[in-house]
């Protein structure tokens, strides 16, 4: 029974989903004051959603790119921090040893944790979706959605990989969160801001705020002001390449990074 071949849904993904749903269900245990804050936030969201309808200028793609920029800033700040708690938090809570003595393969552990970390970003994307649909100008719909769909998921994946890798490398959860968020901000914000400042100094042109805050979107042509991609474009590319490297390191070096057993992968594979 215990040695059966792995199949079905990854148990770690089910576990993450269950914990995510439970966090929502535990709203019922909150005191009245917190309920008032939450309901106010929900009302504000609905009012802004309704008013957005009047602000949208379907012929202009500025509104669309503004939503994408806000969404990506939110993802950039939240995702590395959340996913950086995966292994470090388990290690700190004392649950990691129980997990590592289960007959789950390294691949199942890594992929289950990575997939589980998509739940938070998906919520942000879900919240932004109504705004995004309303802000889509009919003429450029295909181009805008194509660009967004080809940019946002890889970026989320990159940020999750970065966070999970940091959680495997750094022993304390707080440390892992700080490192992951720091790296994401350096490549996603700091580098493009420096580039924008450089542009201003060298070309005497004023950079747009979208150029400063969302190089990924700028580079893919969502915002037309940028004609020559500079360092801003390198930020997300560094992030994506780094994410691939993090993922490879996690899958191949899991024993050394997380188990701390120094088990050779080749010897383990014999089992």
């Amino acid at each position: 029974m215990a040695n059966a071949r792995p199949r079905g849904v990854n148990p770690l993904l089910v576990h993450s989903l269950r914990q995510f749903m439970r966090a929502r269900r535990k709203l019922g245990q909150r005191p009245l004051g917190q309920w008032i804050i939450l309901l106010s936030a929900a009302a504000a969201y609905l009012v802004s959603l309704a008013s957005w309808w009047h602000l949208v200028r379907p012929a202009d793609k500025g509104a669309f790119s503004t939503v994408v920029i806000c969404m990506m800033i939110g993802l950039g700040l939240m995702v590395p921090g959340l996913s950086a708690g995966v292994f470090a938090q388990e290690r700190q809570n004392g649950t990691l040893d129980l997990l590592l003595t289960c007959p789950l393969t390294n691949r199942e552990l890594v992929r289950g944790k990575l997939l589980g970390q998509f739940l938070g970003p998906l919520t942000i994307v879900g919240l932004a979706l109504p705004f995004l649909i309303l802000a889509t100008p009919a003429a450029d719909a295909a181009m805008l959605w194509g660009a967004t769909l080809s940019t946002v998921p890889p970026l989320i994946l990159a940020l999750v990989c970065l966070g999970v890798y940091c959680s495997a490398r750094v022993r304390s959860a707080a440390g892992a969160r700080a490192v992951a968020t720091g790296v994401a901000l350096t490549f996603g914000l700091l580098l493009p801001m420096l580039d924008a400042a450089f542009c201003e100094l060298s070309h005497h042109s004023e950079p747009t705020w979208s150029q400063i805050f969302c190089p990924c979107v700028s580079y893919l042509g969502l915002v037309g002001e940028i004609t020559e991609p500079g360092l801003s474009a390198l930020g997300p590319i560094f992030l994506l390449v780094g994410a691939v490297w993090c993922f490879a390191r996690l899958e191949l070096g899991f024993d050394r990074l997380v188990r701390n057993t120094e088990y050779s992968p080749r010897r383990s594979a014999d089992a």
Binding site: G8, P11, H15, C102, P103, L104
Partner: peptide, 10 residues
């Protein structure tokens, strides 16, 4: 969760 991690059928 642990039962599924130990591959015990649902």
């Amino acid at each position: 969760f642990f039962a599924s991690a130990y591959r015990i059928p649902r």
